[in-house]
Design a protein around this nucleic acid. Structure first.
Length: 806
DNA sequence: TCCTCAGAAGTTTTT
DNA sequence: CTTCTGAGGA
């Protein structure tokens, strides 16, 4: 039987396959869905919610759905509202941090936080730590602030307060001490970092039985996306919402519906614990495990490659993707002589694809590390192909935006010392390190914020800083009654930010970004994370369990629960201002890091950034030992297995056509590296591959023997000197095996000899062109080249690197 | 107090 | 080869 028979068939279920339908219609008990790449995971998750609602098993208020990214949360909301005419806002759907924020605002008293607490992002956290270290004269050689930050975040992710950490040596003790001091500082300033959002809300739930029990009763269905990416604390947090394991199977309990894919776990480095999946099954006594193995994305050559590769990992939960699509095209493998040549080959290939009407947005270049994007960008730029690089600074992380936000935060909370220090002398107003030190001394001895210490500072410094504070006070006063965007306009004008950037040579972009901030504010409609959860507040206010159970109270979909962000707090009459809401939004959602969509452009990104995306044509570049798998991950098995999962993610991004390329030499950190091809080539099914370049045999051994470069097995080396033995196949190598000869000759084979009039050539700076004429000979030889993008130029052949293009 | 230059470091990243 | 950060000079 396909679906539970007590449930009437629903149009929602139309089009689902057997596995998907089974997952969607599972009884209200804990379940783990192993959802392979491209198996319709998001669809199952959202349809499950829609189905639960439609069949009356739950009301919107009884849903808690957690994701990792805002993007995923938004998508879930959108899909859901297209499926059902319901008030999506009554549900708790959001990111872990977004929901924690909402929770802490509602229970700020129990959490011992001001209702308008502000959120430190990673940058802010680091500067707060630096400030702390300076204040306590910490040797930043022995204890680099970055490392302290890593330590603190790690502790919080493991649910440990300073008192819980076992410090065995001097170093650990010092770190714990700093952790404790950092906590004090944050508490004093009324700010929380990302880890604190999670940990603090976890603790409120753990330590307040009525609150915990209230939420346990309220959330009948808890759904978690990307479960393989959860860390220890997030798992513990989920446990707080779920009813105790023993009751897990009773009708009274709630149900945790976890969706994930252990093969796509690629975030161990930031604390993700795949083991949570197995723990979940054990601790929650999970009876329902469903594998979604039907893939709707890729052709079988691609899928078989992915399956074969990942089968080399041990400790898998076990899963094999299948597809109804045909074999499709083979996976193409290319070996380049240099990273330049690799990029150039890609560009040529892309042009051909474009000629075959493949949209550029359906071509993606994936790489292991960001540094690899540069060569590709250069090649694309020179060829005049539009491209878009993912990653990099997001909107709310930009310096000018952070500055503006710092002013805004100071309007809300003058005690925010991080923000104070950020802008006290920006734009420069003659307040130097000396003055600031003086101020910090006063603040320290008085135990107050920098803002409050100002009046006690004497002399010139006091005057200058006093003027700054007065300016803030004026801005705060004038902003009364203004709309959000008016306030922001006021602040960026009167803080001097706009003027400062206008005067700067390259400040135009920054001015535009500041203007963009104003428009962002205009379109900002806050619904997230503040305001009034009627039920939650009842508990918070009285500190007692509800006299009336949420179930009997009912959670009518039409009843706005979290829909009035600006409603005053019932006890204090406090309101969360639009500005405070906007600042929260800015901290929790740092904005797009993919450039504006719209233009048809080739997509460039790291493999990590590609997770969850799909493209018709995918190029995975830099398939070399040391790069992919990365050298830092190769030493232990866990590291290597994560690299393999990363490769698995990369492969499964492709729908129709997949290219894998590697290069003999690569410029990295200003040095030419000589890399072996990646071991992952040996783990792909030969039958699915098509080698575009001859496979390199061991020296003198006929091609084909030991397929895939098995000879290298024992001598795999990634870096350092080039191999002593030179392969016989490269025309550019000299006989002596001189490393310099290799470096110079191999990447630009036969430079000069093929340059004649009419020849198409490539130049590293000017890109593609055609040789019009040659003049002179030997060292004086010059070529006149007409470049596609840069016009006609004369180039000395002894200097310019011109590569002939066939 | 600002600006320039030298040195170090350089997987992957969301909130 | 870059890009960022911090220390010293103008």
């Amino acid at each position: 039987m396909l679906f539970e028979d007590h449930v009437a068939p629903s149009p929602l279920l139309a089009g689902l396959n057997t596995e998907q339908g089974a997952a969607v219609t599972l009884p209200p008990e804990h379940a783990l869905i192993l959802a392979g790449a491209g198996s319709g995971k998001t669809r199952v998750l959202t349809t499950r919610i829609a189905w639960l609602l439609q069949t009356g098993q739950v009301t919107p208020g009884g849903i808690l759905a957690v994701t990792f990214t805002n993007k995923a949360a938004k998508e879930m909301m959108t899909r859901l509202s297209s499926m059902l005419p319901i008030n999506v806002r009554g549900m708790w759907i959001g990111t872990f941090h977004g929901l924690c924020n909402r929770f802490l605002r509602a229970h700020h008293k129990l959490a011992n936080l001001p209702q308008t607490f502000q959120i430190l992002d990673t940058q802010d956290q680091l500067s707060a730590i630096k400030r702390l270290c300076k204040q306590f004269n910490v040797d930043d050689e022995r204890y680099p602030p970055k490392q302290i930050q890593y330590f603190i975040s790690g502790c919080k992710e493991d649910g440990q307060r300073p008192g819980d950490v076992v410090a065995r040596d001097e170093e650990a003790r010092k770190k714990v001490e700093l952790y404790a001091l950092y906590e004090e500082q944050c508490q004093r300033e009324g700010v929380v970092d990302f880890g604190e959002l999670m940990l603090r809300s976890f603790e409120v739930l753990r330590d307040n039985d009525p609150v915990r029990e209230h939420y346990q009763r309220r959330f009948r269905h808890i759904l978690i996306d990307e479960f393989q990416d959860t860390n220890r604390l997030q798992y513990a947090w989920i446990k707080m919402f779920s009813t105790p394991p023993l009751e897990g199977l009773t009708p009274a309990g709630n149900a945790v519906f976890a969706v994930g894919d252990d093969d796509q776990s690629i975030y161990a480095f930031r604390g993700a614990r795949v083991g949570n999946m197995a723990d979940f099954v054990r601790e929650f006594n999970v009876r329902h495990q469903i594998k979604l193995e039907q893939n709707y994305r890729s052709c079988s050559n691609i899928l078989d490659s992915a399956n074969e590769l990942i089968s080399h990992n041990s400790h898998r939960l076990g899963k094999n993707l299948r597809t109804d699509a045909g074999a499709g095209e083979p996976v193409r493998v290319f070996e380049a002589t240099s990273d330049f040549a690799e990029a150039q080959w890609m560009v040529d290939e892309m042009k051909q694809l474009a000629r075959k009407d493949v949209p550029k947005a359906e071509m993606a270049v994936l790489y292991r590390s960001n540094a690899q994007s540069r060569v590709v960008e250069t090649a694309l730029f020179n060829a005049g192909l539009p491209y878009r690089v993912y990653g990099g600074l997001r909107f709310f992380e930009r310096a000018e935006i952070k500055h503006a936000l710092a002013y805004l935060r100071l309007l809300e909370n003058p005690n925010d010392d991080t923000s104070f220090l950020r802008v006290v002398n920006f734009p420069p107003r003659g307040i130097g390190a000396r003055s600031i030190e003086q101020l910090q001394d006063v603040a320290r001895s008085a135990g107050c914020s920098l803002h409050d210490a100002v009046s006690a500072v004497t002399g010139r410094a006091g005057v200058a800083i006093g003027a700054f504070v007065a300016k803030l006070d004026v801005l705060r006063e004038r902003s009364e009654g203004m709309t959000l965007s008016e306030i922001i306009e006021l602040v960026i004008d009167h803080s001097g930010l706009v003027d400062h950037y206008r005067a700067e040579r390259e400040g135009q972009d920054r001015v535009e970004n500041l203007e963009e901030l104003v428009s962002a504010a205009k379109s900002f409609v806050g619904i997230e994370g503040f305001g009034r959860d009627a039920v939650a507040r009842t508990v918070d206010a009285s500190g007692q369990p509800l006299t009336q159970s949420p179930a009997s109270q009912g959670f009518d979909a039409s009843l706005p629960v979290l829909d009035e962000p600006l409603a005053p707090d019932a006890d204090t009459g406090e309101t969360m201002s639009p500005l405070a809401a906007f600042l929260t939004h800015a901290a929790l959602e740092s904005g797009d890091n993919q450039a504006q969509a719209g233009q048809d452009a080739v997509q460039l990104m790291t493999v990590h950034a590609a997770k969850g995306l799909e493209f018709d044509c995918v190029f995975i570049t830099g398939m070399e030992e040391g790069l992919f798998p990365h050298e830092n991950s190769m030493s232990d098995r866990d590291g290597l297995e994560e690299e393999r999962r990363l490769m698995y993610v990369a492969i499964t991004r492709a729908r129709k056509r997949l290219y894998l390329s590697h290069s003999q030499t690569r410029m990295l950190h200003g040095q030419t590296r000589y890399n072996m091809k990646s071991r992952f080539f040996d783990e792909l099914p030969e039958a699915c591959l098509k080698w575009l370049t001859p496979q390199q045999p061991a020296w003198g051994v006929p091609s084909g023997a030991g397929g895939g470069g098995g000879q290298w097995q024992n001598g795999r080396r990634s870096f350092g000197a080039p191999p002593v033995l030179q392969p016989a196949w490269s025309p550019g190598f000299n006989e002596k095996g001189d490393p310099k000869g290799l470096g110079q000759t191999a990447p630009e084979p036969d430079r000069g000899t093929d340059i004649r009039a009419g020849q198409a050539v490539f130049h590293n700076k000017f890109g593609e062109g055609k040789v019009l004429a040659i003049e002179g000979a030997g060292a004086d030889a010059r070529a006149q080249v007409s470049f596609t993008r840069h016009g006609v130029k004369w180039l000395a052949l002894s200097v310019a690197k011109l590569t002939p293009i066939p």
